[in-house]
Simulated assay, not measured.
Amino acid sequence: MIANLLRKYSSTFHPVVPFKAEHDRLLLMDFTDANTKLTPPILTDTLLFSAYVHTELQNTGALYGIGGYAENRTIYSRSPHFHTAAHEEPRRLHLGVDIWGSAGTPVFAPLGGMVHSFAFNNAYGDYGATIVLLHQLDGMAFYTLYGHLSLPDIAVLKEGHYINRGQLFAHFGTPEENGYWPPHLHLQVIENMELKEGDYPGVCKLSEREKYLTNCPDPDILLGMMQYASARHSH
Results as ranks from 00 to 15, higher is better:
residue 11 S to R: 12
residue 14 H to W: 05
residue 16 V to P: 01
residue 20 K to L: 13
residue 25 R to K: 14
residue 31 F to Q: 08
residue 32 T to D: 01
residue 33 D to N: 07
residue 36 T to F: 09
residue 41 P to G: 06
residue 43 L to R: 07
residue 43 L to I: 02
residue 55 T to P: 02
residue 60 T to E: 13
residue 65 G to W: 07
residue 68 G to T: 02
residue 76 Y to K: 14
residue 80 P to H: 14
residue 80 P to L: 12
residue 84 T to A: 10
residue 95 L to P: 02
residue 103 A to P: 07
residue 103 A to W: 01
residue 106 P to Y: 02
residue 110 P to F: 13
residue 111 L to S: 10
residue 111 L to G: 09
residue 113 G to D: 15
residue 116 H to T: 04
residue 121 N to F: 07
residue 121 N to P: 06
residue 124 Y to F: 09
residue 129 A to T: 01
residue 132 V to P: 05
residue 134 L to C: 14
residue 142 F to K: 14
residue 143 Y to V: 10
residue 144 T to F: 06
residue 144 T to W: 01
residue 148 H to E: 09
residue 150 S to D: 02
residue 152 P to Y: 03
residue 153 D to A: 09
residue 159 E to H: 13
residue 164 N to G: 12
residue 165 R to M: 12
residue 166 G to Q: 02
residue 169 F to A: 01
residue 173 G to Q: 12
residue 175 P to D: 02
residue 183 P to E: 12
residue 185 L to H: 01
residue 186 H to Y: 11
residue 195 L to H: 11
residue 198 G to T: 04
residue 200 Y to M: 00
residue 201 P to T: 00
residue 204 C to D: 03
residue 207 S to H: 08
residue 208 E to S: 11
residue 209 R to V: 02
residue 211 K to C: 01
residue 214 T to N: 11
residue 216 C to S: 14
residue 216 C to T: 13
residue 218 D to M: 05
residue 219 P to C: 12
residue 222 L to P: 08
residue 225 M to E: 03
residue 226 M to G: 08
residue 235 H to A: 14
